[in-house]
């Protein structure tokens, strides 16, 4: 790991101010992507701004039809939260599928979303649940936030403070895990809202998380697994690597979507 200056602000304002002054900086959330990346010297920021001591980035709150989660809430905290389990059980179940217990004790929702790993779970949840990503500067719809592999709408120095999820009537996440890394080879999050169904896929797309409009239309008309019969996703937009080729991933999208709808309608 290359040397860096370490900063430990205690408020979002202080963090933003530090970010404005510091050259070549990165924010440190749970550190479970950034620190391994720095160890490999794939990242070498001159300044590391640790968000771990900022109380205003924490908390889980249900207000009306929305569930709001602080950006520094850990996967384990989301998985075990009574509020999350009650409001959006699929989101708690998804968080429980990330990494292993130790990783879930450190990794955060804000870090996962800001990183936008093409195989991460939270981007699919945000997209399917039509989440709003709240930053210290503005509110960004999930549809506008995720802009391709490791790419988001965040500007330099912008800090995610909260993520707000509208509460769906039914939802589920089906994940085919890479057994070694526990990342999603393919993960499909399905959510039924008052104004229709949203289907988001992670792990599969060559351009990161994406929605499947044909599935959404079919499921909006008829929210049953059989509504997906005959719908296929194009292989040429799928990722292909040593773990799974594009044809297999395209097939898994259909299988996981069906399992997610089965799980959502069983509940």
């Amino acid at each position: 790991m290359y040397a860096f200056e370490y900063h430990r602000p205690t408020s979002v304002k202080e963090a933003a101010s530090l970010a404005g002054q510091a050259e070549d900086m990165k924010f440190l959330a749970g550190g479970h992507t950034l620190l391994p990346t720095m160890k490999l010297r794939l990242a070498g920021p001159a300044n590391l701004i640790d968000l771990g001591q900022i109380a205003e980035l924490r908390g889980i709150e249900r207000a009306g039809d929305a569930l709001t989660i602080g950006a520094m809430m850990k996967h384990g905290e989301v998985a075990n939260s009574a509020e999350v389990k009650q409001a959006v059980p699929a989101l708690a179940e998804m968080a429980e599928l990330i990494g292993d217990p130790h990783v879930r004790n450190r990794g955060t929702i804000g870090g996962s979303i800001a990183n936008n790993d093409p195989s991460a779970d939270y981007p699919a949840a945000c997209l399917a649940l039509n989440a709003t990503i709240v930053t210290n500067q503005r509110k960004i719809a999930a549809d506008d936030f995720f802009q391709g592999i490791f790419t988001t709408a965040l500007e330099e120095g912008e800090i995610i403070t909260h993520v707000s999820f509208p509460i769906p009537s039914q939802a589920a996440y089906a994940k085919f895990r890479n057994p070694a890394s526990r990342y999603a080879l393919v993960g499909v999050f399905v959510a039924k809202h008052a104004d229709g169904v949203r289907v988001a896929v992670t792990g599969a797309g060559s351009n990161g998380v994406f929605r499947v409009q044909e599935m959404e239309q079919a499921l909006s008309a008829n929210f049953t697994p059989d509504a997906l019969n005959g719908i296929v996703v194009a292989e040429d937009e799928m990722n292909s690597d040593i773990h799974a080729d594009a044809a297999y991933r395209a097939h898994l999208v259909g299988v996981m979507a069906r399992r997610a709808v089965e799980a959502a309608t069983r509940a």
């Binding site: 370490y6 430990r8 440190l28 550190g31 479970h32 620190l35 391994p36 640790d50 771990g52 130790h102 990783v103 004790n105 450190r106």
Partner: peptide, 10 residues
């Protein structure tokens, strides 16, 4: 936690 993925300063 996995202490290889936590900074001492954290």
């Amino acid at each position: 936690v996995k202490s290889c993925t936590v900074l001492a300063v954290q």
